[in-house]
């Protein structure tokens, strides 16, 4: 891991809803990343909580933060503490399951979502402190990104040339790639490209990547912390 170049706003910040950057702000961010993966119109969501999340989620409002994230709220949204009432109003069903299983990090959650088309998707992630998160699994595929930088996630077919096409677009928009990783299930099958950037990513870039070729299945963006 690189030494982070701490900004003044990493020290005096983030702006957040309390009480805990790891158990509240980080949880909201995990929920928000999940929402991107869940797709349009999430109807049902199950949160499986591990470790410290399972033991102390109530007192820290981890449950409300997770639901708020799935509803699309940021960690500093004033309505975060009312997320459950909002979910009820908007017809989002949620449940919490506590697991005794060991997770690799104490603050881990698995988020399983069913959207309006009946499509099920899931992510696994951990809140690793200071509001920072680490996403470790998307739809059963092992990945790794922190959400600290603006992050583009691309689900694509594992075919030659796809990576080059995408990085070409990044170049065209002068977006500097800080970190990039490619993950796949099996040769020639489903793959994920995770690109963490130094610059904000305009919508246009996502549209252009989406329009590249049939090999691109989905493009998601997670804004930086």
């Amino acid at each position: 891991m690189q030494i982070k170049n701490y900004s003044a706003f990493d020290i005096i910040g983030p702006r957040m809803i309390g009480p805990s950057s790891s158990h509240t702000a980080g949880a909201a961010r995990l929920g928000k990343v999940a929402r991107k993966i869940g797709g349009k119109g999430i109807q049902e969501v199950t949160f499986i909580l591990y470790g410290s999340f399972a033991q102390t989620y109530k007192g820290h409002g981890t449950d409300r933060a997770l639901v708020a994230g799935v509803l699309g709220m940021d960690p500093n949204d004033e309505n975060l503490s009312k997320s459950m009432e909002i979910a009820l109003r908007d017809g989002l069903k949620y449940q919490f399951v506590l697991s005794d299983d060991e997770a690799s990090h104490p603050n881990t959650v698995k988020i399983i979502m069913i959207n309006e088309e009946g499509h099920q998707s899931e992510i696994v992630g951990a809140s690793i402190g200071g509001g920072n998160i680490l996403v470790t699994e998307i739809n059963g595929l092992a990945v790794e990104f922190t959400g600290e930088y603006p992050t583009i996630m691309i689900r694509h077919m594992d075919k030659p040339g796809v990576v080059a096409d995408v990085t070409h677009i990044m170049d065209e928009f002068e977006i500097n790639i800080a970190f990039m990783k490619v993950f796949r299930q099996r040769k020639g099958e489903d793959a994920f490209m995770i690109i963490e950037t130094d610059n904000d990513v305009p919508k246009k870039v996502l549209e252009k990547i989406r329009g590249l070729a049939d090999e691109i299945l989905h493009v998601y963006l997670v804004e930086g912390l």
């Binding site: 020290i11 910040g13 957040m16 809803i17």
Partner: peptide, 20 residues
């Protein structure tokens, strides 16, 4: 305010956000 799920600025953390 932090403990009641109100809005604060971590400084440097949420648990120490009152002092500064």
């Amino acid at each position: 305010v932090n403990a009641s799920m109100g809005q604060i600025v971590a400084a440097p953390t949420a648990g120490s956000s009152g002092i500064l």
